[in-house]
Amino acid sequence: MTNILSDSAYVVESLPELWFGLVMISLGVYLLLDGFDFGLGMLFVEADETERERMLAAFGPLWKANEVWLVLFGTVLFAGFPAVYANILSRHYLLVFAILLALGLRGLGSKLREEHDDDQWVRFWDACFVVGSTTAPFLLGVFVASWVLGEPSALAVAPIVVGITVVALSIVLGAAFLGIKTRGTLRERVVRRGRAAIAVYVGLFALTAVVLFVRYPELQPVLQSIPTAAMVLATLVFAMLGVGTTSNGYYHGAFLSAAGLAAVFVLFISTLLYPAVDPAAGLSITDAVVSPLSLNLTAVFAVVFLPIIGFYFVFLYTLFSGPASPETSYSSH
C-alpha cells in the first residue's frame, strides 16, 4: 500500500494513459446510454399519446442514471487533467451552457408533462422534451469535435458535421432501445426509422472522415492508418448487422449492433485526440496530468467503485428489462 500513495511515481507507469482511456470510456458510455434517451426523445415526435406514455415508461427509470455518466465523465476529466477541464469549458463557454439548457429541457419536459392534465400544458412540455432531446446530442457532438480537433470556434464545418452525425447515431440507439422495450406497431415503425437512421449515419460517418481529411492535414496519417480502416470496416459490419437483425426480428442483436456503432465512433474520436488531451492549448497527456499521489489515489477509488457502478447498471437494466408498460409506472400516482 505504501507505494500506491507514493508521491514520486505513478502506481502503474502508464497510469496517465490509462486515465485518458477512462475519460474516453466514460464519454463513450455516456453517449451510448443517453443516446438511447435522445433517440427516444426524437422518435417521440411522431408517436401518439398512448405510444408516448409507453415510451416514457421505458425512459422513466433509466434516464437519470444514464445522465450521471456525463457528470462522471466531467469529474474523471477534472480529476486527471484539471487544466484541460478548465480550458475546454471556458473556451466553449456559451456552448457548454447551451448543452446544459438542452439537457434541462429534456429532463423537465418528460417529468412535467405528467403533472397537469391539460392539452396545452402537455403539448408544451412534449415540445421541450423533443427539442431538448434533439439539440443535446447535436451540441454535444459539436463540443466534442471542437475539443478533439482543437478548433478554437465551434462554428466550423467539422464540428457541425460531427454534431449531425451524433444526432443520427442517437436515433439509431433510441430505435434499438425501443426495439426491445416496446411491441406491436410502435416497434415496427420505430425499427423502420432505426434502419433508415443507420444508412444516414454511415453516410455521415464517411462525410466526417472526408471533411477531416480535407480540412485537417495533420490528421491525414491517422485517417490513412490501418486502425482507422478497421474502424470504418467495423462500422459497416455493425450497420449491416443492425439492418439484418431487425429484419429477422432479432431485436437484441440490433441493440448490440447499435452499441457497437457507438463504441467504434468514440474509439475513432479518441484516436484523433491521442496523445494530446487538449490540442488547442497544446496540452498532451503528460503535460496536463496531475501529480502521481493525486492520480494514484483517484485511481484506487476508480478501481473499487467502477465495478460497483457496473453492477448497479446491470442490476437496473435487468430490473427494468422487458417491454415497458405505463400502467405499472410511477406516473399513476
Binding site: 445522465e67 469529474t75 480529476a79 487533467f81 478548465a86 493525486s294 477509488f301 427494468f320
Partner: peptide, 28 residues
C-alpha cells in the same frame, strides 16, 4: 484541480450513481 477534482469524482462515483440508480427503484 488536484485538490478538488478527486473529491468531486469520488462524489460522482460513490454518491450520484447510488442515488440515481436506487431512486429509479424507489419510484418505479
Amino acid at each position: 484541480g488536484e485538490m478538488i477534482g478527486g473529491p468531486l469524482s469520488f462524489e460522482a462515483k460513490m454518491a450520484f450513481m447510488l442515488e440515481a440508480v436506487f431512486l429509479g427503484v424507489l419510484l418505479f
